[in-house]
């Protein structure tokens, strides 16, 4: 686990992003620490409201200001803090050094520009190529992402393409300037399974070919198992577990991770009787629990969990877990407080 700075392409330290609404502050991301090693894939999993997407938007500073704001923390990309960059510097990084793929291929492409124009645009901005050369490169990119008859497709508008094709165009846009880091926010959620399989395969192959580091944000544990090297599980704006993909699936330690894994109905395994569930629902973001955010739903929660927030601590096998269970104080605690039947 001792990595030198050079091995890490991105390091997020104590990132706090809040949204300020009429009803008060929502701490969407609350002290997140993450890092991605060069050429590797980090998965961020969590359910809605976990802050996983806001984390990714914060890294690229794409929040809708002034409602959403990075309050504190650092985002170190190649040794430099992105939070401190000027608007202009950020523009040069976006789409060039770090690019992003979004969830909805239907709405993420501009309906009034051809696919070719949309790819060529970022090439023109970052590589200062002329119109003709940028277009040729755009066609090449379409070919790279496996779109048949790319010359023809480049002249078409997004509505003329299927969902899977549109997501390929999105990937072409994001990889056009050969970025060092690609952030994919739910890249296949809106797609059918057989198309999802194609797109995941494509991303994997391109990553290998181009050596891009990858950050995948998803709610789908299957996608995580398929794609990632490391996994961060988020709940209510905090990372609750951060480990190797193998550890997460074979030896998960946080009660939320365990609950999440058990509540997925699996297609390749029979579950007799009912699914095991996590009781209750995600707390109101305006009134987050004082102690551990998961405590009200946790089957093991004890007194300390309700009052004191646990830290993200490393366990014996290098897995980082935010839970009192793995601390020394745990033994001193009394009975569990949530008596669920």
């Amino acid at each position: 686990m001792n990595l030198t700075k050079e091995d890490k392409i991105l390091e997020v330290k104590n990132l706090c992003t809040s949204f300020f609404t009429d009803e008060g502050e929502v701490k969407a991301v609350d002290g997140v620490d993450l890092s991605i090693e060069k050429g590797k894939t980090l998965g961020i999993v969590g359910e809605s409201g976990s802050g996983k997407s806001i984390t990714s938007l914060s890294i690229l500073r794409l929040l809708q200001e002034p409602a959403g704001r990075i309050k504190e923390g650092e985002v170190i990309f190649k040794g430099e803090d992105l939070v401190k960059k000027t608007k202009k510097q950020m523009r040069e990084i976006r789409g060039n050094n770090i690019s992003m793929i979004f969830q909805e291929p239907m709405t993420s492409l501009n309906p009034t520009l051809t696919c070719g124009e949309q790819i060529a645009e970022s090439i023109r901005i970052h590589q200062k190529l002329n119109k003709k050369k940028a277009w040729a490169k755009a066609v090449d990119m379409l070919k790279l992402v496996g779109i048949p008859s790319p010359e023809k497709r480049a002249k078409q508008y997004p509505f003329e393409l299927s969902g899977g094709m549109r997501q390929r165009v999105m990937i072409a846009i994001s990889l056009a300037c050969n970025p060092e880091l690609l952030i994919a926010d739910e890249p296949t959620t809106a797609l059918d399974v057989t198309i999802q399989a194609q797109i995941l395969e494509l991303i994997k192959n391109l990553q290998k070919e181009l050596g891009t580091s990858l950050m995948i944000i998803t709610h789908d544990l299957g996608v995580v198992a398929e794609m990632c090297d490391k996994v961060a599980v988020m709940y209510c704006g905090k990372v609750v577990e951060y480990a190797d993909v193998k550890t997460i699936f074979t030896n998960p330690k946080h009660p939320y991770t365990i609950g999440l894994l058990n509540s997925v109905p699996k297609h390749d395994e029979d579950v007799e009787g009912d699914l095991s569930i996590i009781p209750g629902s995600v707390p109101n973001p305006f009134h987050l629990p004082e102690g551990c955010r998961f405590a009200p739903r946790c089957p093991h929660a004890k007194e300390i969990c309700l009052t004191k927030l646990p830290h993200l601590e490393e366990t014996f096998d290098g897995d980082k877990v935010r839970c009192w269970i793995h601390s020394e104080e745990w033994e001193k605690q009394g009975k569990a407080v949530n008596a669920h039947e």
Partner: peptide
Amino acid sequence: ALLSAIPSTNIA
């Protein structure tokens, strides 16, 4: 194909 396309959580 449909069954095999689903990403599995069974990483073993």
